[in-house]
Design a protein around this nucleic acid. Structure first.
Length: 563
RNA sequence: UGGGGAAUAGCCAAGCUGGUAAGGCAUCGGAUUUUGAUUCCGUGAUCCCUGGUUCAAGUCCAGGUUCCCCAGCCA
């Protein structure tokens, strides 16, 4: 469970502390995470999940998982399935409290009847268009519906017949009778029930009227005895209505608290946009590793602990904010550095022949599995005459500050020997093979005479290496805030190079024991995750995130100087 | 001349009843290093503005500015 360092402190916990002090809810703390099953969860939801479940943990309270499934037109079973999977994967437990708003439809209906009986709601025969036109504008009041003063008896009768299916979609609605000139648009006789002859994933054909969010949500919270109903900022305008409904029918009244939703640079965080990316094939499904969905991040190799820690550290406040994606990456690296076993793999192989090493000889070099975790132990890596190193670890004419291999230069091959380059063999101007020698006295990687080398390279034995495909991911968008341009579509900023597939990678044999979704580090390259499509026939790795790369930074600076 | 929110370093974000600006990321230096990784050190703020109260204001008062949300039978 999330056990990371000091306890969180934020304005919501301040409110809870105060409520506890005044004994407002008898010492109880009960939250809920209420997703609508109309899409996959993303990291913005993770923030809410960590907040709600985190508060429950901190205060030894409870947190429910509740599906807010009041709109059968948009909701699907597949989304329910994925949401359950994602919340569980993140590491949270709702015990026996998995609920559906649709489980409360009967009760919500009864409460609506009560609202009508109290003269606080009426059936409106106006068309959607008429209702819209008479709502007024932000600066001018709306007009009362001609049906507003129907008798309670008539309202009861027509509402009953609405439920019985006597009318078609949109013919009538139940409206709260509040104030058509209220400065808050939400209070201008909001719709409580609409007619929708649609099959519901949970209740099937039982209902042809469905409650609206404002009516349903507070009742759901009330029925579940929620103490603090935490939602995002855009619902702040709805709080007066949340309160009004619960007050009118005089039921248990939780407190709604709003916080700012999460935004991260170079991505989008709206279900609508994510769905569009998926539906239009800009990515390969909801779990595409380039997406900020929970399932995408899982496939990318992000760990639940890293995501939880990220959510904890970004804080909770009421300011609209945009977190640098670098901070997310930092949190991922931080966790993976401590937990990911290390391997050697070569993405762009360059052949190396050790001229003074016999062709029939193979040595098993001992390698540390995780320098950050001694208990991870060691493994054997085969070394032989023909090896592969990374193409970019050799330069025929090395620039300043390039410490790696070059003609005449000696470097260390990790966990093996000091290796000296004698000659680069070229074909059509391209280096295709390196002829090198090994210093037999440096076995294991240290020279008895104390001489040093400037760098250490990773390598694999050509004969023993396994072939693999490696997928490198870059930012999905080229713009910091792709959704923030009023006169441009977010899709205009899609990065055409967000996915690079390398198919001739060579990996040390020890990876054969890995399972799908295992998270590892290829030394000097980054963190990687075994793709679920990977199998013994074809190994596939997704790059989660690269290691911090000081050399790349130096290169960039050098390039800028020359141009 | 609608209503509701919010403004603290490039980015998040503490700062409770006023006492002289935490922390993290990023950046840039440096040390250690068989991953140019990790780790470790060091590096940045007249707290949206203008007045006022006070010995003392990010914190209180007044006025202003900017940004976000609201006119779905979506949530």
């Amino acid at each position: 469970m999330p056990s990371e360092e000091a306890e969180a402190h934020d304005f919501i916990r301040d409110i809870i502390n105060e409520d506890l002090r005044t004994n407002k809810y008898g010492g109880r703390v009960h939250t809920r995470f209420p997703p609508e099953p109309n899409g996959y969860l993303h990291i913005g939801h993770a923030k809410s999940i960590c907040l709600n479940f985190g508060i429950a943990e901190d205060y030894k309270g409870k947190c429910n998982l509740r599906f807010d499934d009041t709109n059968p037109a948009k909701e699907e079973e597949e989304y329910v399935r994925s949401i359950i999977e994602d919340v569980r994967w993140l590491g949270f437990d709702w015990e026996d409290r998995l609920f559906f708003a649709s489980d409360y439809f009967d009760q919500m209906y009864d409460y609506a009847v009560e609202l009508v009986k109290r003269g606080k709601a009426y059936v409106d025969d106006s068309t959607a268009d008429e209702i819209s036109r008479t709502r007024g504008t932000l600066t001018s009041p709306g007009q009362k519906s001609p049906y507003r003063d129907r008798s309670i008896e008539e309202n009861l009768d027509v509402f009953t017949r609405m439920r019985a299916g006597e009318f078609g979609d949109g013919e009538k609605v139940l409206r709260a009778k509040i104030d058509m000139s209220h400065p808050n648009m939400n209070m201008r006789d909001p719709i409580v029930y609409r007619i929708l002859h649609a099959s519901h994933h949970n209740t099937g054909e039982k209902w042809c009227i469905y409650p609206m969010y404002d009516w349903a949500h507070g009742l759901e919270d009330s029925i579940e005895n929620i103490t603090h109903s935490i939602c995002t900022l855009e619902f702040e305008n709805h709080r007066p209505l949340y309160d009004w409904f619960l007050d009118q029918i005089e039921v248990y009244h939780p407190q709604q608290i709003e916080f700012a939703r999460l935004n991260i640079t170079y991505t989008v965080m709206s279900k609508r946009m994510l769905k569009q990316l998926v539906d239009e094939g800009h990515v390969n499904g909801w779990d595409d590793p380039r997406l900020p969905t929970i399932s995408g991040m899982r496939r990318r190799g992000y760990s639940p602990a890293a995501i939880r820690n990220f959510c904890k550290r970004i804080g909770v406040a009421k300011v609209n904010s945009m977190v640098d994606f670098e901070f997310l990456e930092y949190c991922i690296r931080e966790d993976l550095n401590k937990t990911a076993p290390r391997f050697m793999g070569v993405l762009q192989p360059l052949k190396v022949v050790i001229e003074n090493y016999p062709d029939d000889k193979v040595e098993e070099m001992e390698a540390v599995n995780n320098p950050e975790d001694p208990s991870a132990g060691t493994r054997k890596v085969p070394f032989s005459r023909e090896l592969c190193i990374e193409e970019e670890d050799f330069m025929e004419e090395p620039p300043k500050k390039f410490y790696r291999l070059a003609p005449g230069r000696e470097v260390r091959f990790r966990y093996a020997y000091f290796v000296k380059c004698k000659e680069a063999i070229k074909q059509n101007g391209k280096v295709v093979e390196l002829r090198c020698t090994v210093d037999p006295d440096t076995r294991g990687g240290n020279a008895p005479d104390g001489r040093k080398v400037k760098s250490t390279l990773h390598w694999v034995s050509a004969r023993h290496a396994m072939d693999a495909e490696v997928r490198l991911y870059d930012k999905l968008f080229t713009e910091k805030d792709p959704a923030g341009h009023k006169d441009a579509d977010f899709k205009d900023f899609i990065n055409p190079n967000s996915l690079e597939v390398l198919t001739s990678c060579k990996i040390e044999p020890a990876v054969k024991n890995l399972k799908p979704l295992d998270r590892i580090q290829f030394e000097r390259l980054g963190y990687f995750c075994v793709d679920p499509d990977s199998n013994s026939e074809k190994l596939i790795f997704n790059r989660t995130v690269g290691l911090r790369d000081t050399w790349a930074k130096i290169q960039k600076q050098q390039q800028q100087k020359t141009t």
